[in-house]
Design a protein around this nucleic acid. Structure first.
Lengths: 351, 351
DNA sequence: TTGAAAGCGCTAACAC
DNA sequence: GTGTTAGCGCTTTCAA
C-alpha cells in the first residue's frame, strides 16, 4: 500500500535544499532562512515524512525511549503502575515501551534484551525475582544495562535503584487490626514466598503476632499462582479441625482466592471468617462485603521511580543503588470483624 | 557504569576474525568454521555483546517488532487482549511494543507515530475512535502505516483489517434474556455512544425490544468515562418515578457503576433491579450476586487479529480491508432475575 | 545560512 | 570459509 517511507534525502531534494538543511529545519536547532524552512516543511507535509528514529539513535542521539517490564499486565496492581508511569513519561517527553515477562525469568531476560537492543535510554522493571537483574556470574560483565530502576521487587543490586512499599509496616498494621478484633488464629495467604516483599509482609505479620504473644500460632499458606489451586489451599485450611478465624491475603490475587474459598464453603464474611487483602482498586468497591485491605501507594511508586530514573539518565547521581520505601495504608472496611469465639463450633454449625 | 556497549567490530577483533564472520556466527545463517564460531561466541560472552537492532533494521532487515495500542491498560478487557496477543507474538518470534492512548486521540496519533518511527513490522490497534486511523485528509497521503489490524473498534478502513465481536447479537441475547424474565423497562448504560461497537450493542437491544413490542420503552443512559459520574447517572435513572427493573450495562466499567448505584440506593440485585453486564473476568466471580454478563471472546480476538496481521506482514493478502466478527456468549448467573411486578411500589418500599 | 562528507553498527554482495 | 566494502537514514562537523 504505502511503499517505502520517504527519507530525509527525498525531502531535501523536493525542497531544493541539502539534507543538512532539511535536518536542521526538522530538528529546529540551528537557524535556517525562512524560505528554506518553508520549503522543507512543505516537502515534509507533502511526502508524509517522519524521521527514522532508528537511524537517529544510531547516530548517537538519545532515543527518548524508556522501557518498562512488568510480570503480568492483567494484574490490576501492575496495570495501575504502568498507567502512572506512562503519565510521567508523557510529561517528560519520553515514550514508554512496555513488555511483560509473564512471571517467567527466561522471557524476562529475552524481552529486556530486546528492549536494550532498541537503545532505550532507561529501564523500569518489576522483576520476576529479586535477583533477576543481577548479572549471571558475579563479577562478570555488567550486561550493559541502561540506567535502571526496580519497582516493587528487588534487592539492592549494584547500581540499581529500588522503589518499594514498606510492606512490613503495612502487614504489621493489618495483623494488628485483626488481633485487636480478637483474632488469634490468623493464616497468611500467598502465591509463593520467594520474593522479598512477600517476606517483608510475613515479617510484619510475625512481628504483630509476637507482640501479642501469638508467635506460635503463625500459619502460612502457600498456594501457587493458579487461582483455583490457591483457592483449594485456602479451603483446605478452612476445613481443618482448628480453622483460622481470619485470613490475611498478601496479594490481590490471593484475596480473590480467599473470598471465593470462604464463599464456596458457605462461610459468612466477616461473621465466620474475616479477610484482609492487599492492594486496592475499583472493582473491589463492588464487593460485598467491601474488602478491608492494605493499599500500596501506586501513584507514588510511579512518580518516585520516574524521578529516580530521570536522575540516573541525566547523570545526577553516583553509581551506588538507592532504596526508597513508601508507606502503605490500612483501609478498614467491611470484611474484617470481631472474631467468633468458638471457631470450631461455629464452623460445624455452618454445615 | 557500563561504558559504551561493545560493537560487532570489537567482537570481531577480539575473536581475531572479520566483522562479516562475526556477523555470520551471530546470525547463524552461513556456514562458518568451528574454530571461528567458537572464538566469536567466546568474545560475545566475554564482552557481553548484544547486537544493536536499530542498526540492523536500518540495514533493511525486518525488525520482528509489532506495535500494539490500547486505549486504557487498566481496563481488564484490554489487558486481557494484550496478554493474548503477547502470547501469539512470542510464539511467532516477535516482540511486542505496547503503548496506551488513554482514550485520547492526540496521544494516540503521537504514540503511533513513535512506534512507526521505530520501524515496526506491524501494528495492532484498539483505536480511540472508529475513524482515528483514517488519514487526516481523505485522498491525501496514506501516512505510511505498516500492516495494521484494528481490534474491537473501527470501521472498515482502506487496507485495514478489523476484528470485532458480534456485539449486536450479544446484546440481543442479553436483552432477550431480560425480556423473558418479564422485564419491560430495561435501561441501557454506556460511557458514550460514539463508537460503532456500542452502537451495535444498542441496535441489538432495540431489536429485542421491537420483537417484544417494547420499542417505545427503549431508554439509553449515557454517563461518561468517570466512574462516579456514571454511577450518578444510574442513580438518577433509578430514582425516577418510573424506574427501570433492569439495567443492561454495555461495558465492564458501566457494569461496575450500575452495581454501585443499586447498592448505594439500597436496592436488592436482582430482587429489585436486575443487572446484566459486558465482558467477563476473574474478579467478577467474587461479586455477590455473580454478574450475568455478555462475554466477549478475548482469546479469539487475540489469535484472530494476530493471524490477520501475519498474513498482511507476509504479503499473503490483497489490499482490501477484511472484517471478522466473533460471537459473544451470554453467561447467565445471579444478577438477573424475575422482574418485580410493580416497580414503583417496591422502589418506594425500599426507602 | 548552507552544503559536502564522515560515520553511527550492522548486513549483504562480492572478491579472495 | 573468510575478508573487504558499500550503504541503510540520519546528525554533525567543517568549509564555503
Amino acid at each position: 500500500m504505502s511503499g517505502k517511507p520517504p527519507t530525509i534525502r527525498e525531502v531535501a531534494s523536493r525542497a531544493g535544499v541539502s539534507v543538512a538543511t532539511a535536518s536542521n529545519v526538522i530538528n529546529g536547532k540551528v537557524s535556517v532562512s525562512d524560505a528554506s524552512r518553508r520549503a522543507v516543511l512543505a516537502a515534509v507535509a507533502a511526502l508524509g515524512y517522519s524521521p527514522n528514529r532508528a537511524a537517529r539513535s544510531l547516530r548517537g542521539a538519545a532515543s527518548r525511549l524508556v522501557g518498562m517490564v512488568v510480570p503480568d499486565i492483567t494484574n490490576v496492581f501492575f496495570a495501575g503502575l504502568v498507567r502512572g508511569v506512562e503519565e510521567q513519561a508523557e510529561r517528560s517527553g519520553y515514550d514508554l515501551l512496555l513488555v511483560s515477562s509473564n512471571e517467567n525469568i527466561a522471557t524476562e531476560r529475552r524481552r529486556i534484551e530486546a528492549l536494550i537492543s532498541r537503545r532505550i535510554d532507561g529501564l523500569l522493571v518489576v522483576p520476576v525475582r529479586d535477583d533477576s537483574l543481577r548479572p549471571p556470574r558475579e563479577g562478570a560483565h555488567a550486561g550493559h544495562l541502561p540506567p535502571t530502576v526496580l519497582i516493587d521487587r528487588g534487592d539492592e543490586a549494584p547500581g540499581l535503584d529500588v522503589v518499594a512499599a514498606d510492606c512490613c509496616s503495612g502487614a504489621y498494621a493489618a495483623t494488628r487490626h485483626l488481633i485487636d478484633l480478637g483474632h488469634r488464629d490468623i493464616v497468611v495467604l500467598a502465591h509463593s514466598i520467594g520474593l522479598n516483599n512477600i517476606q517483608a509482609r510475613i515479617a510484619g505479620y510475625r512481628r504483630a503476632l509476637e507482640e501479642a504473644d501469638l508467635a506460635k500460632r503463625a500459619r502460612i499458606c502457600v498456594g501457587g499462582h493458579v487461582l483455583d489451586a490457591l483457592r483449594g489451599s485456602v479451603e483446605q485450611e478452612l476445613r481443618r479441625a482448628d480453622p483460622p478465624t481470619a485470613i490475611f491475603a498478601l496479594t490481590n490475587g490471593s484475596a480473590l482466592a480467599a473470598i471465593k474459598a470462604a464463599r464456596g464453603l458457605g462461610l459468612e464474611i466477616p461473621g465466620e471468617v474475616s479477610i484482609v487483602g492487599f492492594d486496592d482498586f475499583d472493582w473491589m468497591s463492588a464487593l460485598r462485603p467491601y474488602l478491608t485491605t492494605v493499599a500500596q501507594p501506586i501513584e507514588e511508586f510511579a512518580t518516585c521511580s520516574w524521578r529516580l530514573l530521570m536522575e540516573r539518565i541525566n547523570g545526577e547521581v553516583g553509581p551506588e543503588g538507592r532504596r526508597i520505601e513508601l508507606p502503605c495504608t490500612l483501609r478498614v472496611r467491611e470484611s474484617s470483624g470481631i472474631a467468633r469465639v468458638q471457631p470450631r463450633a461455629v464452623a460445624d454449625a455452618a454445615n
